[in-house]
Amino acid sequence: MPPERPGAPPATSRIPRCAEAERGYDVAQVDDFLAAVHAALQDAPPGPGPEHGSGVVLSTQVRAAVFAGARGGYRPEAVDELLDAVEESLAAAERERCLRARGPEAWQEHLDALTRLLRNRLDRPRTQRFRRPSRPRAQGYSAAHVDVLCERLGARLEGAAPLEPAELRRAVFPPAQGERSYEEQQVDAFLDRAVQLLLASG
């Protein structure tokens, strides 16, 4: 599905539906979310951070969107693909509004703060970048596999290797326990920030 141009109405009529007997994403919930995104692309306040109004949909909120299941709903893979494009459109709009309203120095400060946040993790030794699961014998992500992706991200930030936001969004790690694992929630939050930085960097 082609990306939506910034400010374009959400093309929900092009999202394929599941068969009546299959469960997909609730149509009304997806339509409501995309309508809110369209409003944000039209009217969102400038720039990242606390200047945004509480009712505005931000690019960082797109990955957290959750929809109920419903028979005959939208096909999840099609909605997920559209949400990737929506996130990129919101990120681009936020960048342009910040540049117009606050100037390139403010935007660079935003990028620098994100980079420092990520570097704080990336510069740690392998197997020590994230905390372990707090509950005994709880499963987490394989530390070795997370570390490989972290090193690819570090190379991307240095300009030494390519890494697309989609690779971070779709990253899947084998389960592990104990000292061989990282807490899933902390890794997921880090990857969300990494996607945010890659999109903000253009």
Rank of each mutant, 00 (worst) to 15 (best):
M1H: 05
E4A: 13
E4R: 08
R5K: 13
R5C: 07
P6V: 11
P6W: 05
P9K: 04
A11H: 11
T12K: 07
R14H: 13
I15D: 00
E22R: 11
E22Y: 03
E22H: 08
Y25K: 04
D26Q: 07
V27C: 11
L34I: 07
L34Y: 02
A35H: 05
V37P: 01
A39P: 00
L41E: 15
G47K: 01
P50C: 10
E51V: 15
E51L: 15
H52L: 13
H52Y: 04
G53T: 15
S54Q: 14
G55L: 14
L58S: 03
L58H: 04
S59H: 09
Q61N: 06
A64C: 08
A64N: 07
A70T: 07
G72S: 09
Y74E: 08
Y74T: 09
R75S: 10
R75C: 13
R75A: 15
A78D: 09
A78H: 09
A78V: 06
V79F: 02
A85L: 09
A85Q: 11
V86F: 01
E88P: 02
E88A: 15
S89P: 02
A91K: 02
E96I: 10
A101S: 12
R102C: 05
R102D: 10
P104D: 10
H110R: 09
D112M: 04
A113G: 10
L114D: 05
L117W: 01
L118K: 02
R119H: 12
L122V: 08
P125K: 08
Q128F: 12
R135Y: 05
A138V: 12
G140Y: 02
Y141N: 05
A143I: 07
D147M: 12
L149E: 03
R152N: 10
L153H: 02
L153E: 02
R156C: 14
L157T: 06
E158K: 11
G159F: 04
G159D: 04
A160V: 09
P162W: 03
E164L: 12
E164R: 13
E167L: 06
L168R: 02
R170G: 10
R170I: 06
A171Y: 02
V172Q: 14
V172G: 08
V172I: 13
V172R: 14
F173R: 00
F173M: 02
F173N: 00
F173P: 01
F173Q: 00
P174K: 05
R180N: 04
Y182G: 03
E183V: 10
Q186R: 13
Q186F: 07
V187Q: 00
D188P: 00
F190Q: 00
L191W: 03
V195C: 12
V195R: 07
V195K: 01
L199K: 00
A200M: 04
